[in-house]
Amino acid sequence: MKSRQAPLIQVTGLTAAYGNEIVLENLNFSVDSGEIFVILGGSGCGKSTLLKHLIGLYRPVAGQVLIDGIDLHEAEGDLRLRLLRTMGIMYQQGALFGSLTLLENLCLPLEELSELPETARRLLATMNLALVGLAEHPHRYPAELSGGMRKRAAIARALVLGPRILFLDEPSAGLDPVTSAEMDRLILRLATNLEMTCVLVSHELPSIFAIADRVIMLDRNSRGIIATGTPEDLRHSNNRTVAQFFSRGASG
């Protein structure tokens, strides 16, 4: 692991709200380079909201998100584009473009954001499809894929511009245990071999124990982080909500 002094993502005093309703209040945490960081929590606690703030889709009411020391929400123009280029995002449903084939889906960002020659674009696209095990189906449309394949394709598209941070919104939600385990292995492989920093939103305990380096747990009532640490730390937490979450998961 490369040792880096400053954390890659630094969140300070982040407050998120929809209208007048505050969803998250005064969040502080940081993500180091190369780690697999999981945002955990029950339904409706603001996990996805937090993720959308981290990738710059939503603007925080207060506080800031620093990526590599640069405030994501204040950056403009080329700087903002450069920051966005360091992030790859897998949306929950994949968000692949339905009218394009997989290959075209991956080629599109390269075509629009770089001046690479056509063969180079196709090579990069195929390379990333192969990485997630979809090289056999470059000409399928997203609608012709299973849920798991669609998520993998979405990861391939997120990787195509060579990001350093990969954000994944519920990568194993809605997948069967076998496919879900495959997804975990893929994320681990990306993190260790591609030196990718992964930020996941998840509530799947088995996959969290399999891959997470560090976890933060959000809670709806306190509108903030109620626990931080490794999955093992959280399992032995004294906090009742955390304990409840983990014991339910273990028994059910």
């Binding site: 290959l103 075209e104 056509e118 196709r122 195929t126 990485l131 000409h139």
Partner: peptide
């Protein structure tokens, strides 16, 4: 990182 990618799979690039 290089070892993650398989050159054999790239020999025949799919047509666009």
């Amino acid at each position: 990182l290089r070892s993650q990618f398989d050159l054999a799979q790239l020999n025949r690039l799919p047509k666009s």
